[in-house]
Design a protein around this nucleic acid. Structure first.
Lengths: 180, 180
DNA sequence: GCGAGACCTGCCAAAGATGACATGTAAGAT
DNA sequence: ATCTTACATGTCATCTTTGGCAGGTCTCGC
């Protein structure tokens, strides 16, 4: 399961409470990579503690527990990150929609593609801003995307954007030659 | 739920049996966009029939039932395809790994990135081949990715590939200046 | 004729995810 | 003092997904 790997990764960067981890999934991590509610996170942390992947290092105010990765957990994370690419389960609603877009009428396909262009532009300027903030004051820790991840997102959305423009042309050409 | 939308989309392109639909999820659709086993597909088709989204148009040999989209189903598909982008649940193991890659030691990060470069190269040549086949003999129907989807995949993997090369440089630079 | 393999559908237990509901604590504002 | 809000953790019913098991049908080659 990938939720445990997400938690291991976050805790490897910096120890945190279940509450803090849950918040992460509402930020960039959840927006771009992996979602999870607190009702999944807390039980999962308990399971992982039982398996010796993480441990409670501190109990603070309001019953809060700070977790940290154990050596075993760090090893598990390492082997997951170094495993061959392209193995896991693929379930991407965005890409599914692109696959099925051609089930629409050509003019509606174009409408959807134009919306996508706008959406991608929004994400691109969002990520550009983020990158500039990072360049200005490089931070440590988890409160912001890593530089690698931000750059990745930027390039993906740029590719999506350019593709959508190409696709609009493509559909228009096809439609034009049909009616010619 | 997106499984129903995937099925609606496939059936909108061409009516099919549960068996044929299941096979789709083992091909490009399942590789790139959405996975599902036959044990999900059959019950879902029954649910969708009850909801009036699809109907059985033909019963053939070996108890096979051919499904087709109803008007209601077509309308549901249409509104899903035209809905605003960036709404659905994000759960992408690939991207999650990229987010957490920096939890590794720099030299291991580079190892993982090099693997990713190779992986992306494999996918790119796969998709290029597919595109050439499509250009040679344009097909109808669902037995191959649409041209739009193939081009999309190609551009995404190209972006991933270029990013990974950039990221290797980035990590090396950072490591170099640390030890300088 | 017979066996292998593709075709075609299904059940069921277990695991995982979602959303409603519940509970209590500390800090800061008015 | 009181109230609101963020902090912090949890239960439970429901739904979805997965993987193992099961069973019958048609075709084709030998």
């Amino acid at each position: 399961m990938s939720l445990s790997h997400a938690l291991l990764g976050l805790l490897a960067i910096e120890p945190a409470s279940g509450y803090e981890l849950s918040k992460e999934f509402e930020r960039d991590l959840g927006r771009y990579a992996w979602q999870a509610g607190h009702t999944s996170v807390y039980p999962e942390l308990i399971r992982m503690t039982e398996q010796g992947l993480v441990e409670v290092t501190h109990e603070g105010a309001r019953r809060s527990r700070t977790y940290a990765v154990t050596d075993k957990g760090r090893e598990e994370l390492r082997s997951w990150l170094l495993a061959p690419w392209g193995q896991g389960v693929v379930r991407n609603e965005q890409v599914l929609r692109l696959f099925l877009l051609e089930a629409l009428e050509p003019d509606e396909t174009v409408t959807a593609l134009r919306d996508l262009v706008e959406h991608a532009e929004g994400r691109i300027s969002e990520l550009r801003r983020l990158r500039e903030e990072q360049d200005a004051e490089p931070r440590q820790g988890r409160d912001t995307l890593g530089q690698l991840a931000a750059e990745y997102g930027l390039r993906q959305y740029q590719a999506t954007h350019d593709w959508a423009l190409w696709a609009i042309e493509h559909v228009n050409r096809r439609q034009g030659s049909d009616s010619a």
